Amino acid sequence: MADHQVTKLDPDTAIDIAYDIFLEMAGENLEPADIVLFNLEFEQRGAVEFVETAEDWEQEIGVLVDPNEYAEVWIGLVNEQDEMDTIFAKFLISHQESDREYHVVWAK
């Protein structure tokens, strides 16, 4: 039996994938006020961050997720303390290149 070794996404690649998906889908998934806020503030305060994959995605998407199989990226705005205080979307992106599955939790 072959050892199933997944090459993990590097943070920059995960960030690029998440940001591309975000730009493509934000118009359909965010409130108009959030889109205006993103457009006005992202250049100054915007952040796309690679974060440690959370254990609670099952509650968010209803599917049990192995944190080792996915990268997690957040897109939002940071405050003066450089903390992300507005989150527009959280992405879960599979490390499987051949089957690049992803899940998004949009701001409500």
Rank of each mutant, 00 (worst) to 15 (best):
Y70S: 00
D66E: 15
V48G: 11
I61V: 15
D10M: 04
Q5S: 01
G62W: 12
Q5V: 06
A107P: 03
E52F: 09
L37Q: 07
I87R: 10
E101H: 10
Q44I: 14
V73M: 09
N79D: 15
F88Q: 02
E28T: 12
A47N: 10
G46R: 07
L92M: 05
E72T: 05
D12N: 13
G46I: 10
A107Y: 00
D12V: 13
V105F: 04
D20W: 03
W106Q: 08
E55M: 12
K108E: 01
D56L: 08
V6N: 05
T7I: 06
V104P: 13
Q96N: 15
V63G: 03
I93Y: 03
H4T: 11
T7E: 07
T7L: 04
E41Q: 07
E58C: 00
I17D: 04
I93W: 02
K8C: 05
K90F: 03
I75H: 11
Q44P: 07
Q59M: 13
F50C: 13
R45S: 08
D10F: 06
H103V: 01
N39W: 10
D12E: 13
L9K: 04
N29D: 04
T13I: 14
F50N: 14
H95V: 06
V36S: 05
Q81C: 07
S98A: 15
E97T: 09
K90E: 01
A18K: 12
W106G: 14
I93G: 07
P11I: 12
W106H: 09
H4P: 13
L9W: 07
V78T: 10
W57A: 06
E52S: 14
A47R: 11
G46E: 07
E28P: 07
E55C: 05
T86V: 14
M25L: 14
I17S: 03
L92Y: 02
V105W: 02
R45C: 08
D82Y: 02
P11M: 12
